[in-house]
Nucleic acid binder design. Structure first.
Lengths: 245, 245
DNA sequence: GCTTCAAGAACTGAATTCAAAATATAAAAT
DNA sequence: ATTTTATATTTTGAATTCAGTTCTTGAAGC
């Protein structure tokens, strides 16, 4: 059981390597503190740094081979992103991801995806649409095979492609950040048969609206799509029990 | 002319003291780098640090009476928030706020306000609604008196109150951050008579929908309200000419 | 006069140092 | 035996230091 969860988490980390995060890397300059921040985020996702535990500065410095200065710079940034909390004179602690915060984050992401959909209808290229259609059929295949890990990955890629098609850099940036925050639990979700079927139907509608460039409809669907997930799916499974405040 | 702009900018800085920013301060711990970040943000808003110019580390250290360590920590955070850009081996530069970025930011804020409206209908208390109604009538008075500065201030307070009423902390946090990013130009906007009348009508509808707890309608209005502003108002006046890329 | 290059000064990024605070350990008292 | 107090150790926050880079200045060459 624990092994299964671990496997799933590392898969979710891998996913991000394959999708939005790395595709943005062209712009991103390689600062030392930035690299450290990436590593720490990954360790949080992987569970190597447990939510609620203190950040062992010295140990991480040795592990990364850097001094405390860039590490602490990274911690300030991670704090402003919500990954850690700064405790006065007690360093930093890994943030817990409560069900409330998860719900709130997915609500905001829904709103952003809704906007993405509207904007994407105005800006998407034929090539991008074709790519999304291809991902869609691939996803349907995974659904039919009950391959949930690959389904979730492809599903995520579709949503990211729509966000990118919005051509709104602020939107892309904020969405990416929020997605990172919930990464550690999103891909450990166990979808119920019922919900899964509903999500797939949503995606059929999403593709149809996108083909028609029907921004109104696409916006509506996407604003509900993720929020529904929060309500319908086994939310309790997504945020680890120990993370409930 | 320059004096007038300065006055307006300092007013916009003051505004934030009176509204969302400080009301959140209960939670916020006073870290040194955090204080420095606040000061630098204010200096950017006030124009003391000009967009496009390099950040004078040494000078600011002397001015704030701190060493470079906390200052540089603040700069990393400000970079992740988009206020400055980090140039490898060349320190930090104050970000320019282009018209595109402004437009993109207001679009995202619109989407967030739309969600706020929907959530506020479900969660708003009678006291909060009464407060918003009071602000609304106050704002109408400023409109009739053609007092644009106070109008914009009160307008902002209404929108913030709705966002807070959403009871979604992630939403409040992201909105606050985006609002900060555009603070420096938002309150220097010159509204046309025509647009101004339209905005006021929107607000009548907003209050009405809020009273009815009509989340559908309120969401729709709010999703358009700010975006319209972008299209209708004198956008060119909002982003300083020198900020156009 | 203008450009090119070199030496020095200033600045940046990151490691190190140091004082203050927190934590752990050990001794004393109940 | 348990709690309290005192001391030592560790950790944190921030200043300082230092190597490497960029910028400035001025002389040499075209």
């Amino acid at each position: 059981m624990a092994g299964g969860i671990d496997a799933c988490l590392s898969c979710s980390a891998m996913l991000c390597t394959r999708t939005l995060d790395r595709s943005m890397d062209k712009i991103k300059q390689n600062t030392l503190h930035g690299e450290v921040a990436v590593r720490i985020r990954d360790m949080i996702d992987a569970g190597t740094l447990a939510p609620g535990s203190r950040v062992p500065e010295k140990q991480l410095c040795e592990q990364f081979g850097v001094s405390r200065t860039p590490l602490r710079e990274a911690l300030k940034v991670l704090a402003s992103e919500g990954f850690v909390e700064l405790l006065p004179n007690r360093g930093a602690r890994i943030s817990k991801l409560t069900i409330d915060t998860l719900q709130h984050t997915l609500e905001v992401m829904s709103a952003l995806e809704g906007l993405s959909g509207e904007l994407a209808c105005a800006h998407i290229s034929d090539a991008e649409l074709a790519n999304i259609e291809a991902l869609h059929y691939q996803m349907l295949a995974y659904y039919k095979n009950t391959n949930m890990a690959e389904y979730l990955l492809t599903n995520q890629q579709i949503h990211e492609a729509i966000v990118v098609a919005s051509r709104n850099d602020v939107l892309i940036d904020v969405y990416k950040n929020l997605n990172q925050r919930v990464r550690r639990v999103r891909f450990s979700a166990e979808l119920s048969r019922e919900y899964w079927a509903k999500a797939v139907q949503d995606h059929e509608d999403i593709i149809a609206a996108l083909r028609r460039r029907d921004s109104e409809t696409l916006g509506q669907i996407l604003r509900r799509h993720l929020s529904d997930k929060v309500e319908v799916s086994s939310l309790a499974d997504m945020a680890e029990p120990k993370n409930l405040l």
